[in-house]
């Protein structure tokens, strides 16, 4: 088993986020907390489902 990836460094919530929490509702890992805006937590597995459902295209994959 390899070391757990730090997913906070992969998934980026941009300022387009309005805090509608669709990402939290669809996340299979309970990896997003939302209070006014979304925040990726340590349970995130970087499955990218949130990216596909975000109504505001507010979730991005960090480059580099």
């Amino acid at each position: 088993m390899g070391a757990k990836i730090n997913t906070k460094r992969i998934i980026k919530i941009t300022d387009r986020c309005v805090g509608c929490a669709v990402c939290m509702l669809v996340c299979p890992f309970d990896g997003v907390d939302v209070l006014g805006s979304a925040e990726i937590n340590e349970r995130c597995n970087a499955c990218m489902k949130c990216l596909m459902y975000c109504p505001n295209s507010a979730i991005e994959v960090k480059e580099g």
Binding site: C20, V34, L35, P55, N56
Partner: peptide, 11 residues
């Protein structure tokens, strides 16, 4: 269990 805010283009 959920707090959701709605504004701008998802109001």
């Amino acid at each position: 269990i959920a707090v959701q805010s709605f504004h701008d283009d998802w109001p």
